[in-house]
Nucleic acid binder design. Structure first.
Lengths: 254, 254
DNA sequence: CGCGAGGTTGAAACAGTTCAACACTTGTGG
DNA sequence: CCACAAGTGTTGAACTGTTTCAACCTCGCG
């Protein structure tokens, strides 16, 4: 689906005699960046692979947390729902992202694949054991949790104080500058649909659509197609967003 | 100001020959719950006390993080601002709360006292050293960070998907059930003013005021005075809030 | 070719914001 | 002790913008 890098583990034979982690192209972004050599083998020993189809659910809110995951390729959405069906997407998970940072015993959010995805799966118990054995692994997860918390704070500003166009501008900049791509990616591919964007930004799909039109009319973006956005004027878009997101570009993964 | 428990360290002589931490009444809520005996002495050795007047600023967004804090008594607000002055309060810190969970080198938020407050202050460097020495201290901070992340996710739902009355209802329930009081406190004392509430919930002060009136008219709350709310019907208020916040009551501090 | 899903656009309804006035409390100074 | 000003909160009325509801468009696919 996505014109991603040519090397996901899924495309290789599942488990060879030797390390597949070592060749993983998102390793430097993921938890596993904390490990090397033997340590990596130990991680690999408790790892299994998991694939998800588009919109397939991985975990559901309230479910016991028995396994944790590291996303290799694809994209996930994390959300909570209200009894009446209203939904708030708290974030999207990109390759290198870790699933289970916020939760202790129970998952506090539902997780679904936005597009077909591949994950590394671990028993929560075994992962905890490994964290005791390799403190740098725990340290890494701690750093990733802190980063997630900063992201959540930025999100609160977006949700609480930005106007719809500003929200969308921030969102596009966030996608353009997300760490995975290393450099600023342009045009930006929107793997999620308008409903997802709306539920992430606290808007309706109609308002999202109208905000796209506004940015287009103002000449800040160009919609190559409904899911591909070219950022025509990066600076102006950042000015509209108001939010200073520069720290999200570099700090990405400490 | 607040009719709090009778024992804040501030009321005692500043540093006696022996442990003041051991007598601290919020210790079981704070970082220090992870430590005991000698360990507690080690923490106390690097600790100093800090007092803040109402609305006094402790740290400013962008400032280098040289010290970290544990709140003993009072209340703090944490927020970020936009260039044009719009403000989003990401949360309030209550006694036992820790300041500096999300940040690495630089503070990502401004912190001010809502009411006169007393804090334990530590050099960030020394605290890190202590965390290396006592892994359970790091573990404790990690748990508190995870809790903060879950809180942030709940907040995103409140900001993005709840109507004003629902937002206010959630906010009141949050205050009523916050861990410090141990039991559900009623009536609830609002130490912060309407502007703070508005900037926390993503509303204007007028809408906050009107929402108070609506809850009052519906018979769910009673305003003893502008800053004291009696929850008349807890269940109905929870129903209005929509949000299930029960997990915030018990999980408080793992 | 026609159906369905996803996205855009238009018009009306509604709700939160804005602007303004008023009430209440507190502190200052005559 | 009272008058007055300042700060905070509430209420009203008009306005603006998002939501709602509906229609329409486009694309992919059976």
């Amino acid at each position: 689906m996505s014109s991603a890098l040519p090397c996901h583990p899924a495309e290789k034979p599942k488990r060879e005699t030797c390390s597949i982690c070592a060749d993983c192209c998102v390793r430097h972004l993921a938890v596993c960046a904390a490990l090397d050599g033997d340590e990596l083998d130990a991680l690999e020993a408790i790892m299994s692979s998991k694939q998800l189809g588009a919109n397939e659910m991985l975990v559901e809110e309230g479910q016991e947390k028995t396994r944790v995951y590291s996303l290799t390729s694809g994209m996930l959405r994390l959300y909570t729902s209200l009894p009446d069906g209203r939904r708030q997407i708290s974030g999207f998970l990109f390759p290198g992202g870790y699933l289970g940072l916020a939760d202790d015993e129970v998952h506090s959010q539902t997780v679904e694949a936005v597009v077909p995805s591949v994950l590394c799966s671990f028993s929560d118990r075994e992962m905890n054991a490994l964290m005791e054995r390799y403190p740098q692994l725990k340290e890494r997860l701690y750093e990733m949790t802190k980063f997630a918390l900063r992201q959540a704070h930025d999100n609160q500003m977006i949700l609480g104080r930005l106007a719809p166009v500003e929200k969308l501008a921030s969102f596009l900049l966030l996608l353009a500058n997300r760490p995975q791509a290393e450099t600023t990616s342009n045009p930006v591919h929107l793997a999620m649909n308008r409903t997802d964007i709306a539920d992430y930004l606290g808007l309706t799909i109609e308002t999202v659509s109208r905000s796209f039109t506004k940015l287009k009319t103002q000449g800040l973006i160009r919609l190559i197609d409904a899911n591909t956005v070219e950022i025509t004027s990066y600076r102006s878009l950042a000015a509209v967003a108001g939010l200073d997101i520069t720290h999200l570009m570099s700090t990405a993964n400490a």
